[in-house]
Design a protein around this nucleic acid. Sequence first.
DNA 1: CACTGGTCTGCAATCGATTGCAAACAAATT
DNA 2: AATTTGTTTGCAATCGATTGCAGACCAGTG
Lengths: 338, 338
Amino acid sequence: MDKRAPPPGRARLSDVARLAGVSASTVSRVLSNPAMVAEPTREAVIAAVSATGYRMNHAARNLRKQRTGTVVALVPNLGNPFFAKILDGMGRELARAGYDLLVADTLEGEGRDTALQRFMDPSRADGIILLDGLVTMPGDPIGCDLPPVITACEWVEGLALPGVMLDNQEGARIAMRHLLQLGHTHIGVIGGPPANVLHQARMRGVRDVAGASRLTMFPGDFTLQAGQDAARMWLDLPVADRPRAIFAFSDEMACAFMAGLLRAGIHTPRDVSIIGFDDIEMGSHLTPALTTIRQPKRDIGRQAAQLILDRIAGRDIMPVTLVQPRLMLRETTAAPPE
Amino acid sequence: MDKRAPPPGRARLSDVARLAGVSASTVSRVLSNPAMVAEPTREAVIAAVSATGYRMNHAARNLRKQRTGTVVALVPNLGNPFFAKILDGMGRELARAGYDLLVADTLEGEGRDTALQRFMDPSRADGIILLDGLVTMPGDPIGCDLPPVITACEWVEGLALPGVMLDNQEGARIAMRHLLQLGHTHIGVIGGPPANVLHQARMRGVRDVAGASRLTMFPGDFTLQAGQDAARMWLDLPVADRPRAIFAFSDEMACAFMAGLLRAGIHTPRDVSIIGFDDIEMGSHLTPALTTIRQPKRDIGRQAAQLILDRIAGRDIMPVTLVQPRLMLRETTAAPPE
DNA sequence: CACTGGTCTGCAATCGATTGCAAACAAATT
DNA sequence: AATTTGTTTGCAATCGATTGCAGACCAGTG
């Protein structure tokens, strides 16, 4: 009889306003700047809000305010548990600031070139945290009001993006020094993909302190499988050529390598010393517990979150934050046999 | 002299239209329904699009179309690598359908009650995938046009939400049968949190086949630490009361338990048999390799994605999809000693 | 030549919240 | 009483893309 516009399933700002007997502007103000509204009005509005079960429409707010309230993290591979703790720290820090974390996979290769394209867009994210060092930066011809981008853990060679990362070179130095101090003179290194920036930085650290000691490289890619393959290669080596100390660029490779040798009756650290990189939780729960270089993952996540929040707020930031690695001395390293 | 409105940093639809000499509607149609536009016009528009570097504004489109193009996955803890592979499968499947996956953490406890509230909102997500069985469902008073919700892996007791999950009860039966067939008569079970639905389902399976055999429970919560604690408890038991077969409700607990015993000189499977649950990658790369119940994580993720896509499209779906577990027979189980 | 049918295109309304501006009113000052 | 100052509130424009409707145009037919 009178209901001109049948109420849509969901209450809008104007519905709340009508019920409270005020204008939509007032309701909006109560919700985002309560101090601006007189006490009695405010209460009426609040009552109307809960009576209608009103919930804000994010699309509308985003359109109007030209911001989204979300930060996008681009990871090379969601399936890699290494990122889990980092994202965890990131998410919590962002939540404290009222931002949501959207995690997206660059789907290694397939969409790598378009991933950044798709998300580097003010209508999708207020900021971007890159965890993939191999994305390609879109050459943007027009409209330079792109959301800020920072890197975490990895970084993009040739782009001067601010970022948070471990001092990988120093981490590698610490690992190598540890093995050398134990008396090892021939060290095997299980690396990452040659194109990976982490691999490159750590190799620099290795060379920094290797000096005259003998080095044997085993190809790797940070995965368990690579560690297992390296173990097979080691076993295939003539006994005299087998390095009695191994520095693996990831804990997963270190674990699988150790298991591979054990299967052949080679014990750690009795016969071979092993040191990993990352300090994944599993490492300390093995027997023997894995000696490794600690990478404070939650911290890195938190700091990356802080960094992007600063950039979003337009605050000046340090170009690069280096996080210090630490030697976790456990049970898999010892002096060489004999 | 003429530029009335100085161009905002970024090209809008109307800017493209002006350059192409057509209306905004036409540009919109070229972008979303090209067949509707005549060939020459289309080409002019496409040229203008790339000339301006135009990129759509998602907020505006979402507002108008009343959809977001994203699916939100709510996980209890982003730091838990168990979810990584599931999210990976999910993300890929959703990407194929043109949806983005937004992963958010319910931050166990703190925001658990508000997490679903915050995201169950048509202006934020077209669909929700719950991976946390302990969230509380908001009692929604008004406006029932909420986005569809499904569960994956876990489920919410008392809510008839559709979902994809492993047949946990059957998985537990398979594990128990395996141990019993080896001749074990006293079995230790390292469980999950009592309130967890997975724990409950698996306990049902354990009881289904335990029969008259003796059971000893060890409290747990799926973490490595819990496995280590269980090992200590086992070692504190009088020798006659020590179960010589252990069924752990997660591979992480199984691994840590095994390592804990080994540290005390107790070998697996010579002295104690161990079977885990999940089939995490690390398990198969240990020595001895962990016997376990396989949970096809990527598959579960993929199927959950399909399910939510079906629900979004309004297609009818099965209320519950049970995924079948499988015994991964490896090296940590054997007949009891003597 | 008028009329029908079809294909393209543009106009203008719409999605829902925010905010600059100014009106309305109350209190304080001269 | 008139003016100033300050507080609340509403009006109306705005963010940018989409789409129902109708007008414009062209070819084909009677």
